[in-house]
Design a binder for these strands. Structure first.
Lengths: 262, 262
DNA sequence: GAGTGGTCTAGACCACGCA
DNA sequence: GCGTGGTCTAGACCACTCT
């Protein structure tokens, strides 16, 4: 299960017979079989073995191929489905989750009307430039001095009114030539997946209140000193790399940031 | 599985033999067996069949008692563990999750230092009073005109400095006599569970930026017009009732609201 | 009807905690 | 050593989709 390629037979962690059962039981490095299958599949997806939206082999086929039982494959696939990496459809098959625009927005775009009704943003003005990474970029994105980044600044509208002012920084090495792809789509994570094979699976956000500065005032049509909500996000790809830093500044007179805990 | 009490044998949804297999297959109302076990256990917990921290019967015992296989019970228990309602410990058993102070704070208290380091609040001044529900309470908590609520206003400190100013409203009928229990613990949800049998499982929060008003300025030692983060929370109990409305106002110079999406 | 995932069962063995 | 949950397997049947 740890062999690199896509082997018809493979060596298991806990070696031997056909399960993790052979007396030895080297407790420390123990990793259950279904976990190994899970990691194998994550690796395959990271390496682009299947395209988004494409179907995987059936449970039976995978089980045969990997030499484990169908139940074990199922447990791995179920976990992947829970994490939103795959999508299972009874009667049809298991598919690599396509980060469609809507899907991606639903997951990571948390602005709503007060009361809970979700809204979807439209694209506004945007500026894209390539530049050297500064200290902040280096620390957050794990870069080295001298590395290049691409910085995107854009407005996002709701019902034609500016609602959000974003600054987005990504490593140029991870998204080659992205600075020449304007106009960028509303849901960037969709583009990251389809054009760069980068699956954003989680995002860490830190929120604070601030006062409108000159930029905010101009872009969001606010007066100086009006309250703005600042959302500072680090987006993590399937392979664990932090591949985007985003700071959004938001007028919360008409919208709120909505989240469910628990 | 749908019978109310705690039956040694019970009637199944999809009736008949011993699984959901008897030709009829009335597709519409289909609910898998493990789901029925799940709902049965939720009902038991809601009704206080076991105390927080107490162990449930073993998988085998439950399976025997309910007349299903161990695997089916396991699937229900695993789901309950994922939702944090139960806690499973290999070699020991399955326990009703005890909403300890730390646990409850960890789950619902989202303030951190910028960068991610978690903090824990201390109790500050508090005022508790019983009053008639107003329109806002009625709408949010699903009450009727004339119902009573208990309102708690309190400060919470971090490192001795005021960080949070909270207004908490709960239905008096759900938490009888809570107004006479001062001083209230830091983690209220722990008290709700141990003294009232109310398990808070999820919370919906809406965040916005605002400017410090007179109250904020006084309690949080801010100047008027300083930015504050407002967190508007509805807390939902295991049985689906909204049992608390809480508005927190927060000074985010030293703290941020941290959340992970995905 | 064939093929897929979804549910359910039964039984074996492993890892863990405790007496 | 016993009892608990955790993993793994094998096989049956159900529900869904497409042809």
């Amino acid at each position: 299960m740890d062999s690199p390629a896509r082997p018809p037979y493979y060596a298991r962690d806990n070696q031997g017979g056909s399960k993790a059962r052979d007396g030895v039981s080297a407790t420390p490095g123990f990793r259950p079989l279904y976990r190994q299958v899970y990691e194998y599949l994550v690796r395959q997806v990271s390496e682009g073995a299947w395209r988004p939206g494409e179907a995987l082999p059936s449970e039976q086929a995978l089980a045969r191929e990997l030499g484990v039982s169908q139940g074990t494959v199922r447990k791995a696939l179920d976990a992947l489905a829970v994490e939103g990496i795959m999508e299972r459809r009874q009667g049809k098959g298991t598919f690599i989750a396509a980060n469609t625009q809507e899907r991606s927005l639903f997951k990571f775009f948390r602005l709503s009307r007060p009361g809970g009704e979700r809204v979807t943003p439209q694209r506004g003005e945007e500026q894209v430039r390539r530049r050297a990474a500064n200290q902040g970029d280096i620390a957050r994105l794990g870069l080295s001095k001298g590395d290049k980044v691409v910085e995107i600044r854009r407005i996002r509208l709701v019902d034609g009114e500016p609602a959000l002012f974003e600054m987005i920084v990504v490593p140029a090495a991870v998204f080659p030539d992205i600075e020449n792809r304007a106009p960028l789509p509303n849901a960037l994570y969709s583009l990251y997946q389809s054009d760069y094979g980068i699956n954003i699976t989680t995002a860490h956000e830190e929120l604070k209140a601030d006062l409108a500065r000159k930029d905010d005032a101009a872009y969001l049509k606010l007066s100086l000193g009006a309250p703005v909500l600042q959302i500072d996000r680090l987006a993590v790809a399937l392979d664990g790399r932090v591949v985007e830093w985003r700071v959004s500044r938001c007028d919360t007179r008409n919208f709120v940031y909505a989240v469910t805990l628990g």
